[in-house]
Amino acid sequence: MHGLVVEFDDPRRLVAACAKVREAGYRRWDAHTPFPIHGMDAAMGIRGTRLPWLVLAGGAAGLGAALLMIWWMNAMDYPLNISGKPLFGLPAAIPVAFELTVLFSAFAAFLGMWIANGLPRLHHPLLQHEPFRRATSDRFFIVIESTDPRFDPQATRALLASLGGLAVTEVQEQIHEEGAGR
């Protein structure tokens, strides 16, 4: 079993339910909604990410790489006098340094986000779960994964059932047979 899912038709109930799941001390769980909901981060207890530090480091690396590259190419490896300017003139180096700072920051942000989220991932058990299809239109879900240290088939099911949702269902780890022949 991948985990247990509870389904809601009202975002306010979902937010309240998330707070209860958080208070129960679960770690490996998530909420799925068709649109962003204010107050969700607080209810779920989502903390800030360390990604900004990675982006800052990426930017600094880009800045350093650009300045070193220009200095090495223009002033050391192949000194080239361009209209009497210094071999390494900071004003001339700044546009490239700026661009590489931005480029490396963007790389760090994009790739860092992928790595932090375990992407690319081509399949997820939830995508096989029939009720979950409405998560992109009009239903709101909480999923508690079975790998959570506090997960207990009976107790977790009881907790989810107490949250005032529509139905609690199991999500299977394995791909359903019906899709195999196509």
Binding site: R12, V15, A19, H38, G39
Partner: peptide
């Protein structure tokens, strides 16, 4: 948890 309070 209720909805975030909108100040008046």
């Amino acid at each position: 948890m209720t909805e975030p309070q909108i100040p008046k």
